[in-house]
Structures are given as structure tokens and as C-alpha cells.
Amino acid sequence: MIELSESYQKRPIRFLELWEINDWKIKMYGISYKNDLPSHDLISKAKEIAQQSLPVPAITENRYGAGFVGVHDGKDANFIYLSIGGQMKMSFNIMYTYLPRRSQICLKNILIQA
């Protein structure tokens, strides 16, 4: 059985901004373990990672140029999610686990078809 280090506490989930970059329209959302919003450093890191991951051009016959980024400022690790919509009910999802104390970023690419 898994033993939790503490009981569950509700965490605020907030809309951060509509970020427009290179013809992409990205809705950004944040969740934080301790604060109302994720840290500014983590939000900046999420934008940096997302910008490097977004395909160019944003709009093609297979992409709509829209997506979302989730920024989770966690207790022991941080998570950055990037999801972009595509044709035929397909979406491309990337999840990064960011461990700031170790300066590591782990990448998982996931292709989901609805």
C-alpha cells in the first residue's frame, strides 16, 4: 500500500494567459502546491520549452495553431504539459517533468487519438 506523506489539500487551478507566439494561440493554465499561482520562473521555463516544441508553421492542413500549456508547481517536482490539436480528432501531447533541484528535465511524448 502507498503511504502518503500528507493528506490531500485542494490546489488552485488558474487561467494564466492567452499566449500568442509564431501564429500559435496557446491557453496557459497553472496549478500550485503552495501558492495561488506557479512561480514566475516555472512559467518562463514552460514557455521556453513549449516554444522549442511547437511545430512551425502553426497552421497546416493537419494543425489548427491552437493548444494549451499546463504548468504544475508541485511539492517535489514540477510538471509542464503541452497539448496541440490536430486533424481527425488527434492531439499531440508532451509532458515534461522538471526537477529544479537536480536541473533535470525528463521528456515524454504521447500521441493520443480520440
Rank of each mutant, 00 (worst) to 15 (best):
M1P: 09
I105A: 01
L18S: 12
R63E: 02
R102T: 07
G30H: 01
L4K: 11
M95W: 04
I84T: 14
Q9D: 08
Y96H: 05
M1F: 09
F68L: 15
K45Y: 01
F79V: 08
S103V: 03
L99C: 00
G30T: 08
T97F: 01
H40T: 11
L4T: 04
S91T: 09
M95Q: 15
F68M: 14
Q87F: 06
A46P: 07
I43C: 03
K10M: 11
L54T: 13
G67K: 10
M95L: 10
D36A: 07
S83N: 15
D73M: 02
I26K: 08
A58G: 06
S91G: 03
P57V: 02
S39C: 02
K89G: 13
L107T: 09
I105W: 01
R101V: 08
G70H: 08
I80D: 09
G86K: 10
G85R: 02
M88E: 12
A58K: 05
R102P: 00
Y81E: 08
M1D: 12
I49C: 11
Y64M: 12
L42Y: 02
K47E: 12
D36Y: 03
G65C: 06
K25Q: 12
D41A: 14
I26F: 06
I2K: 09
D36V: 03
P12G: 05
E17W: 01
D36W: 00
D41H: 09
L16P: 01
D23H: 10
K89P: 00
M95E: 11
I110N: 13
L16F: 00
I31W: 01
G70M: 14
S53A: 13
A50D: 07
K45S: 06
L18D: 08
H40W: 00
G67M: 08
S53P: 01
H72W: 07
L82D: 02
V71W: 07
